[in-house]
Structure formats: C-alpha cells, structure tokens
Amino acid sequence: MTLRSPLARSRPPADPDADLLARVRAGEERAFVELVARHRGTMLRLARMHVSSSAIAEEVVQDAWVAVLRGLAAFEGRSTFRTWLLQIVLNRARSTGVREHRTIAVGDAGPAVDPTRFDADGAWASPPRPWEDEIGERLDARALASQLRSGLDGLPARQREVVMLRDVDGLSSDEVCAALDITEANQRVLLHRGRSRLRAALEAEVGTP
C-alpha cells in the first residue's frame, strides 16, 4: 500500500501537453508542429465565433502561436497549457472581433424526440430500437463519421459550436460558457438540442423502428 501525501493528492492532473511542451522548449521544431496540429482546430473554432470571417480567424490563430512562443518561457503551468492557449486566442479574437455581439438564439425549442413517437400519456409508442451491436456492424467508422459530420453541419450555429467544443474538443462546460459568454443554463439547452439531434441523425442511419 502506498501512502500519498495530501499535497500529492491535491496536485492537478498531469497536463497532456507536458511532453510536447518540454520538447518545444528544448528547441524541437517537429514538436511545435505537433502542438499546432493538436490544437489548431479548437483555436479556429473559438476564434471564428468572435470574428467576421474565417480568414480573420486564421490570422488570430497565427498571432496566438507567435504569442505562445514568446510567452512560453513565462508559462508556469498553473493551468493546463490548453487553458492558457485558449485564453490567448479568446483575448485576441475579442480584441480583433468586429462582429456584432450575436443574440443568443437558444430558441429552436423543438422537442428532443418527434412527439408522435409518444402516446397520449407520454409513454413511448414507437420506442428506440436497441443500437449498440448494430451500430458497429452496419456502419463502418468512416460512414459513421460522415453521418455525424453532416448531422453537425445541419445544426443551428450555436448548437453546433457548443457540441463541437464540448464533445469534439473536450472543453468543460465552464470553459464553453466563458468562451461564448453564455450562462450554464443556456449552454445546457444548446447542448441538449444539439446532442438530441445528433442521436436522431444516427438513429435515422441505423434504422428507425
């Protein structure tokens, strides 16, 4: 049995970028390119939410990497590298952004499931057909990914943003709320609509009852 000191227990989880960062600090170019590859998509998505064009978002991301290289020596690892990185992107995107503050269209309050699938008492009349075995068999990974991508493309912009940041990029709800200037409750509504629609898109592919 190992005894762990309270200090060890309170230590934050290891930064998944720590190894790459060490190599970047040692001057390894390839490690830097890997770091860029790992985070660029998320950075672009975040930037694009605050500026008026993809071209400007690209510039913001480029500038952010310059700032990262300049600031890396001073980065002490109090937060994870990604948290620090995304904060740089957000600050830059916000100060660059000429985009009018978008009204948060939480709207689109359609139900998660087609209401005709419930009976008058609200119980399933046409229940979901079990997936799990089927979904792997009937759809190969590529078909599944393309179905999900078109499902995402079909979502209203705000829902797509929240689902991408949460479920593709793995940001926490706090991080998403801060990035989009929305409340927890709004974030959850958007996430709920988006995920529900994606489930329905997969169901349509696997086969409705």
Binding site: R40, G41, T42, V113, P127, P128, R129, P130, W131, E132, I135, A141, L144, A145, L148, R149, L152, V163, D167, V168, G170, R195, S196, L198, R199, L202, E203
Partner: peptide, 19 residues
Amino acid sequence: EYLRQMRETIRLTGTLTDA
C-alpha cells in the same frame, strides 16, 4: 435504451478529429 444511445452519441462525436 435512449440513455445508452445518448451516451453512445456523445462517445462517437468525441471520436471525430480535425483534418
């Protein structure tokens, strides 16, 4: 089953990667 499907949807979305 619906709950499992939502979890599966979230898991599958998480497997998407950027180009």
